[in-house]
Amino acid sequence: MEISVTVNGVTHTGDVEPRTLLVQYIREHVGLTGTNIGCDTSSCGACSVHLNGEAVKSCTVLAVQADGQQITTIEGLAADDGTLHPMQQAFMENHGLQCGYCTPGMVMAATSLLKENPNPSEHDVRIGLEGNLCRCTGYHNIVQSVLAAATK
């Protein structure tokens, strides 16, 4: 099927197999590999991207469902001059990442969380990131990162 998807402001048009997942489309067709795959049950959230501004797990969306939609991936978050997005900056300043594999999904989920709730409590942040797993940080510094970003 031919689909047309705008990823980080650039529109890509091409054929995909109907069974192609959005995450496969982003990684293999568009060639943006910052979005990671950590499981096959929509449990880990490593593949989180924004679909029309809202965080989704791109392994639970078919590429064809994104036809005509706007996608933002981790590569589209920093400013054109390379300045990190405040959430990326907050993760760096608060050591909110170690191996970095869950990080793109975690950052995308966190930015979406702050859009919905600009002044979250620690509890709100933990609940809001429930769908994103991290094995390195124990979440402590991820939560601190998101709380710090909320004050910027």
Partner: peptide
């Protein structure tokens, strides 16, 4: 000191094995 590793990991530039085309 903030980590040198972070900018590449935070922007999706870092390459894991499965990312290498």
């Amino acid at each position: 000191l903030l980590r040198k590793e972070d900018p590449a990991l935070l922007t999706g530039e870092a390459k894991f094995t499965g990312d290498i085309a």
